[in-house]
Computed example of a mutant assay.
Amino acid sequence: MFTEAQLYSPVTRTGDGDVTVHLSTEHPGVHDPAYRARRNAIAACALEYTSGAPTPRIAYTEAEEQVWRTVSIELARKHRGLASAEVLAAARRLALPTDHIPQLDEISAALTPLTGFRYVPAAGLVPLREFFGSFADRIFHSTQYIRHHSAPLYTPEPDAIHEIIGHATQLASPRFAAIYEAAGAAVARLRTDAALKFLADVFWFSLEFGVLREHGEIRCYGAGLLSSYGEIDEFRRAELRPLDVFAMGTGVYDITHYQPILFCAESMSEIEDVIGAFFESMDDETPLRARHLPTHANVPVAQ
C-alpha cells in the first residue's frame, strides 16, 4: 500500500500566514528550535511560489552546505560500484556540484537541455494526482530543505538530497525521463483513487526502489536507493523478484525499514518494456486486468 503521506512532515498555514512544519517526535531536528524555524521559513517560500514565477532561491547556511558536501561525496563513491550504467551516464551529464547545494533553478537549467524536465518548489507532500500528473508536462515538485546536521547520512523524510541526487539524476536520462512522462500521462486517464494508488505503488517499486542486473551484478536505479547512504548498502541482501506489475501495484511494505523485497529487471530495456509500457497503457481497469495476468512474483531471482 502506498504510504507516501507518512514520509513528509505535515505543513500548516494559519489565517495570519504563519507556516509550521510539524516534525515527528523521532525527527533528529525536533528539539532544535533553530532547525524548526528554518524548516518553517523554507516551507513558507515554497507555499508562496506560483506557477511561472521565478523559483525561490534559498540562502543555505554553512551547516546545510556541509551536510550536502558530506552526503554527495559519500553517495558518489557508492554509486560508482552500485548504481546502474544508465544512472552513472546520467550523473555525468548532470554534473551535480559536490561543494554546494544547487538551487532548483540551477537543476532546471541543467535538466531542461537534457530531457526537458524542470523543478518547482514544494513545501512537503504534494497531492498524488498533482505530483505524478505534472510529469506529463515534465515538471518535478521538489522540496528544498536539508536534513538535520546531527545525522547527515540519515533522514526520516525526503529532502533536497533525495529529490536532487535521487530523482534529478534519473531525470537526466532520456530513457528514465520518458518513463516519468508516461506515468504523468497515465494520471490524466485515471478517475479512481484505487487506480492512482496502484500507479503510485508500481512507481515506488520501480523508479524509487528498482534494481536491475548488469554483467552478472545487481545494480540500483531507484531514486530511493540512490539517495540513501544506508539502504544502498543493503539492497543486494533483499529478496529479488522478477518484474511483476500486479505484485508491485498491490505490494505491502514498511517505509521505516530497509526494503526486504525488491523487483529486479534483467536490463534497462526490460524496465522500458514492462514499467514504461504499463504506464503508457494504464487506465482505471488496469488493476483488475493485471490480477488475471500470469505472475512470477513468488519466484525469487537468483542472486
Rank of each mutant, 00 (worst) to 15 (best):
G15W: 04
G15V: 09
D16Q: 11
G17L: 07
G17Y: 07
V19F: 11
T20G: 03
T20H: 12
H22P: 08
L23E: 05
E26S: 15
G29H: 08
G29Q: 08
V30Q: 15
V30P: 10
H31P: 02
P33H: 12
P33T: 12
R36W: 08
A37F: 04
R38E: 10
R39K: 09
N40I: 03
N40S: 09
I42C: 11
I42G: 06
A43W: 03
A44T: 10
A44H: 09
A44K: 12
L47F: 14
E48R: 15
Y49P: 13
S51F: 13
A53G: 00
P54S: 01
T55Y: 00
T55F: 00
R57T: 13
I58F: 06
I58D: 01
A59N: 14
Y60T: 03
E62D: 10
E64Q: 06
E64S: 03
V67W: 00
V67L: 02
W68D: 01
W68R: 02
W68Q: 03
V71Q: 03
V71M: 07
S72D: 00
S72V: 01
S72L: 00
L75R: 07
A76P: 02
A76I: 02
A76C: 11
R77T: 12
K78I: 00
H79L: 08
R80M: 05
L82W: 04
L82M: 13
A85D: 11
E86W: 08
L88E: 05
L88K: 11
A90C: 04
A91W: 02
A91M: 06
R92V: 11
R92E: 15
R93C: 08
R93S: 14
R93Y: 04
L94I: 02
L96I: 00
P97I: 12
T98F: 06
T98L: 10
T98G: 09
D99A: 14
H100G: 08
P102C: 13
P102T: 11
P102M: 13
Q103C: 05
L104A: 05
D105T: 00
D105G: 00
I107A: 04
S108L: 06
A109S: 14
A110Y: 02
L111W: 04
T112P: 02
T112W: 08
T112V: 07
L114R: 06
G116K: 09
R118N: 02
Y119C: 06
A122E: 07
A122V: 09
A122C: 11
A123M: 07
A123P: 04
A123T: 03
G124W: 06
G124P: 06
G124E: 07
G124D: 07
V126Q: 12
V126Y: 14
P127I: 14
P127Q: 15
P127D: 15
E130T: 15
E130K: 15
F131I: 12
F131M: 14
G133A: 12
S134N: 14
F135Q: 10
A136Q: 14
D137A: 14
F140H: 10
F140C: 11
H141W: 09
T143N: 12
Q144Y: 08
H148Y: 08
H149G: 04
